[in-house]
Design a protein around this nucleic acid. Structure first.
Lengths: 197, 197
DNA sequence: CAGCGTTGTAAGCAAGCGCTTACAACGCTG
DNA sequence: CAGCGTTGTAAGCGCTTGCTTACAACGCTG
């Protein structure tokens, strides 16, 4: 974002902010909001914890900042008919919480937290649902879209949070295959597209 | 459970235990484990909070006790081919968290908590998956079963925890219809059975 | 190089948490 | 009715939490 010319200044507010944001993103995805303390985040970022409050104001605001840096761009970059397949691939990848799917997992592990819920309601989730609903001509397209979104969330929950076997160690390809076939029934018109990829 | 003959004794350990268990079940389902304090539970049960520790030992043990009193009996009482439909009906009913589906929601709102996760892994979830897997002859029956379970969890999450529209206010019949059709594809052999009810 | 805003540090505060303790009130048993 | 285990109560302990404060070190600007 900001200019990255000078090689590691000793006093660098932007670098500190970025380190805090990165540490928070990782830890929120791994443990959820409540189980992550500001001391954890500061330690992980190798930064004094008072700076967290100087630069972000509160733990809540930092959480919101991590959610804002969401995987929204994937929705914009992915053709609608491949969204489910792409998202599944992302979510099912090993160490997904540490990678690009981290906002997903942050939300799953903090679902009771109001800001996480509203992120799903209004931001990330709403974007997904909008795109998914455009894939079908069936009545109740928007409800069907929500059901697909619910499935994606549930799979992440059961596989990576709860760690239920055999799902936790199942081959992503097998999961994708099953899910996409069933989703094709839900979003009928575009069966052949969704199934592709 | 215990004899219920005497009309409201003034000092009644069993009644106190039951009141605590009921209050805990309700509150854990409504707010999750972390957001519920022992003081909340004691107040809701109209009982001194020290008694919670006398009778249950710890907040964790009380949580486990609420999960043990699970809706396991429904699995035993329901014919396998109607399990998905029955569970959906239960989960989609208004005020589901306050009713018989409460362990479901306690788990959803406390998914990061290890005991909640292990309840899904080993107890409630394992029972569900076992029955669901018996419904199909497809390869990977157990993975398909987990995927159905994941869907149920995801729907509860998105509808009642996150409160996403339009799913949150959608007609249970519409949801059931969509889900059962898609589940029939996943668990193929018994399409006609699953779709029934 | 004096002055000053910016960045980093150390210490601690108030509040809430799970849990414990010390004690009082009750009611069955001898 | 004396004795005693059971049930209920009030108070608070020790710890962790999010957050604040007071201060030191740095480095740009005049």
């Amino acid at each position: 974002m900001t200019r990255e010319d000078a090689p590691a200044r000793r006093r660098d507010a932007d670098a500190t902010k970025a380190a805090l944001l990165a540490a928070a993103t990782t830890l929120f995805a791994e443990r959820g909001f409540e189980q992550t303390t500001v001391r954890d985040i500061a330690a992980h970022a190798k930064v004094n914890q008072a700076l967290l409050f100087r630069y972000f104001g509160s733990k809540d605001a930092l959480f919101q900042a991590t959610l804002a840096t969401s995987s929204r761009q994937m929705i914009a970059e992915t053709p609608p008919e491949k969204l489910v397949a792409r998202t599944l691939a992302l979510m099912l990848a090993p160490d997904a919480p540490k990678a690009d799917a981290s906002p997903f997992y942050a939300v799953l592990r903090s679902s009771s937290h109001e800001q996480a819920a509203s992120a799903v309601r209004q931001d990330i989730g709403a974007d997904y649902a909008r795109v998914l609903a455009s894939l079908t001509d069936e009545p109740n397209a928007d409800i069907r879209a929500d059901l697909v979104l619910a499935w994606l969330l549930g799979i992440g929950l059961l596989r990576s949070v709860v760690n239920k076997q055999p799902l936790a160690d199942a081959d992503p390809a097998v999961i994708s295959d099953c899910v996409l076939k069933a989703v094709a029934v839900l979003l009928e018109r575009s069966a052949q597209h969704v199934y592709a990829d």
